[in-house]
Design a protein around this nucleic acid. Sequence first.
RNA 1: GGGGGAGUAGCUCAAUGGUCAGAGCGGCGGGCUUAUAUCCCGCUGGUUCCAGGUUCGAGUCCUGGCUCCCCUACCA
Length: 1119
Amino acid sequence: MFRPVSAKPDLVAQEHEILAEWRARRTFERLRAQNAGGPKWSFLDGPITANSPMGVHHAWGRAYKDVFQRFHAMLGEDQRWQNGFDCQGLWVEVNVERDLGFTNKRDIEDYGIAEFVSLCKQRVLTYAARQTEQSVRLGMWMDWNDPDELRRLRDLLAADPSRPTTIEGPDGPVTDSVEMLVGRLGMPDVGGSYFTFSNENNDLIWGFLKECHRRGWLYKGHDTMPWCARCGTGISQMEMNEGYADREDPGLTIRLPLVDRPGEDLLVWTTTPWTLTSNVAAAVGPALRYVKVRQGDAIHWLAKGTLKQALTGTFEVLEERPGSELVGWRYAGPFDDLPAVRKAFATGASPIAADAPYEHRVVAWDEVGEEEGTGIVHVAPGCGAEDFALGKALGLPMIAPLDESGIVVDGFGSLTGRDVRDVTDPIVEHLKHEDRFYRLEPYLHRYPHCWRCQTPLVFRLVDEWYISMGPVYDKPRAELTRAEVDASLRYQIMEVVDRIRWIPSFGYDRELDWLLNMHDWMISKKRYWGLALPIYDCHACGTFDVVGGRDELRERAVAGWDAFEGHTPHRPYIDAVTVACPSCGAPVERIKDVGNPWLDAGIVPFSTLHFREDPGYWQEWFPADFITESFPGQFRNWFYSMLAMSTVLRREPPFVTIFGYALVFGGDGRPMHKSSGNAVDFDEAAERMGVDVMRWMYTTARPEENIRFGWHAADDARRELLVLWNVYAFFVTYARLNGWQATGSSDGSSAGTVLDRWILSRAAATAAVVGDRLADVDAAAAAKAISTFIDDLSTWYLRLSRKRFSRNDDAADRSTAFATLHGALLALARFAAPILPFLTEAIYGNLGGAIAGAPDSVHLTRWPADELAPARDEPLERAMATARAAVELARTLRGSAGIRTRQPLARMWLAVPGGAETELDALVALIRDEINVRAVELIGDESELVERRVKPLLPKIGRKHGSAIPAIMAAARENAVEYGADGSVTLAGVTLAPDEVEILASPRAGTAVAHHDGLVVVIDTELTDDLRAEGDARELQRAIQDLRKDAGLALDDRIEVWVDGLADDAAAHLDDVAEETLADTIHRGPAPAGSAEASSEVALSRGSVTIALCRVRRAGEAA
RNA sequence: GGGGGAGUAGCUCAAUGGUCAGAGCGGCGGGCUUAUAUCCCGCUGGUUCCAGGUUCGAGUCCUGGCUCCCCUACCA
């Protein structure tokens, strides 16, 4: 017997029960064992940042990951099931800093780098445990660590990292110091999720960097970089565009007096006043026109095209010259007295005479424009990349005013020691005092900000480390020679990209576009928590070397190994080791920088697949068959770093297929992000809507479109699943009432009715489509097919079959009906299992548990498509589609005639298109019942019901007949047509050949309606007294059923009914009414006082009738 | 700032240059149903961003403008 099922299920509670059941029965472990040795399907999980609890936006991708893994498991394929955590980098550092209340890097140094790094590791373990729990709740099956074990390691790490401890690995206990054990997480002997902070991950990146160096692609750059003063680190190109935002800066115009033209000055505009301290030149466009203007006593020079925007008040133009004539003019700088300026100028060479000290000069620069400012550009080569390039080209001195925290360095007078963000006011004051100030007004522009902490970036002159991407050639890829590709990493990566299937396909173009525009990859960060870059830069001789791994470091160490031994390769311990310079032999320290975190994630196709310690294993699992991540952002991040590293190491694709999806938006219409404050907590959503509903919402969504997350959308998703649930509940309710049991083998397909065979065919078809779509990475289409099947099952199969379950004296037919619905539901449970793991498990558990020998979980069953395939009957499916269309048309006709479906009609006429005659009798009967007509007459020749119309084929006749077209089309619309004997037609005096027109049959006005497939339906709308009486009886029956429901009666309660005011001809049908409503007696006349439990009134064709009912007490029942 | 894409019903989106611009959702009305919180039918809804142009015919092609999105970017 099946367990009873509520029509209003608590899906959330049920999910928790199933999670407990999976745990208790070790269902996942058994699935892995079952598939061990099967064909391999290699999924590579993109690491999630273990830095905060998940929001609902993380669940989209994780739902996809689980759907595809479960599906491939049902195909019997062996998988690795390894989740990944991203661990190193600024994300984690910034949060630890916040927790500690730190505001800058000095706080970290004071606190102690070792302690700080340990806190970063602890934070990662905390949130890895948390996200593990959340992912399990989502139904995600992975080789999870025990979250409590992760928290235990965290606590031990805090207490004493050197203490030995033991954890249970897949092949037995593993013992090591806490610190080293944490560094071994995810490795084969320890098991569980991979962590990018692992020793192996770091070690393999070292190997990668050494390989880059071997090929000469690694270099140190000296340049002005975008810089975050709060984080104290440079911002790479990959990170830059995360942080563009509108910002209001001071738009400051100042006067620079000309030394050789007393009383005259240059007007210069800047939005970064702090850079004025480092001014060394003023650039003019040599081809632009410049004017001298008088304003009161002052005389200014500026570009002619900027007069209106740059000047305030009236002016008088005195003189005009090309910019080239201004070049070489000397001017007084804005901060000439500062020691730093004097020092730079004393050592800088004058462009006029090599031995003279430098002086401020007007220089020529083609880039200068007139759109903004004054057409005279303030140049500070220490404060901007373009200025830097210009300064380098012209040999100008460089002044770098900021330290790494954005504090003004020594030599800048009263500004020294101040924060760059606070110097605008003192600078303006200074300029006013010196009579250099002209104008200040706010200026709104797009400005880069730190992607992590939103601090506006500054530009600093620094040393950073880069991987060269190679030249960009000014010609199409197809024309490149082999040698050119071999000399440029970016084109090599593109060749790898060519070999990958990108879904959606625009991903391919986006990745190529990024690669073409990518600057060299800046891999260094002047921070603490992350990959220790294994670069040893010799100050003695100026050469640098790269160490390729821990073992190599041990061999080459000349000092400090003891301090490092026993530690993971992180700061500060790694910094103690020095090696001998291979060039001059001097002892060299590691550079202090840590690595770009995308190095950490990019190496995982190697590190997690044991590239080094088990090459055989790596061969088997590389490249990954599949990865899936959110597209926005990853082209320049994870995809890019994996592609770059795999290209360098193997020149092979690291993955074969990539499936990308868009973003989850919050209720405010912005991308959902924790830092945006619009994130919806995952746990809240899971407990409120249930994770199957969430998974359904995500898998039905179009992956290339952003999703707007909302509870309303969740309700829509839930409603659809409740339809399925109600079919299931219906089945269980009546199976229990009838004592029906599954026998194990019967699928009802041979003896079933046309509807039975149809729904089983639909189940087979759906299983095939869902399997095909999932195999092709199209979850939305798979979900859509399931959705259509649920609709078929509920609104067509069950609607039309209901009586076979509830009131059926034919035991064999009843049994067939139960077997059919049972089979359809079990099939659905199986092919929907990857998407809806809980709901399908509940259904399967109740319906399939009874069958001997069946697996005890739907997730241990194999993909059902082949098994179901024999039930497929495509002609029947097509015929049924036609029948459904006919019913819809007839309903439309009823609607427009104002005759409700309960009112029987004498007959309808039906013309079906050729080829749809399969099961015609059964389908006609079905249509007859559904439309409630006594007879259906088939019309072989539909010509009585339709008229011929002509549709001229415009693309064919358009050019030939030109301006006659409107008249031809008007004639066609009015059907003013002459048919020729040869098939030609004449419209508006123009004769068209047979192949220039299409002859259509369209329904005559007044009938209806079938536009395609030639289906035509007509109903007889004449109502006889007899039909009215039967209609009234049906209406009465329906009112009694309503009343039963209102009175809260059980499905099998028997009743006694009173009907007052019913006409005699309708009363002739009362026996039928009594049977349908489970009434023992139907009295005519009013109910005796006090005997009725419920009553109501119903309007019939000949007046209103009062009905009343009460429950009949059974023998032995208390009164 | 540069490059690309898109503007169509209240919303999400269709419509090889072809003659009444369509779906779904929503809204309104009606209907079916003792599994249903569902479902079915009908109706409603349009300056196809604006202004020109090409054409027998333009949502579609061309020119100019406006707005939004994506990619990219320190012009002072």
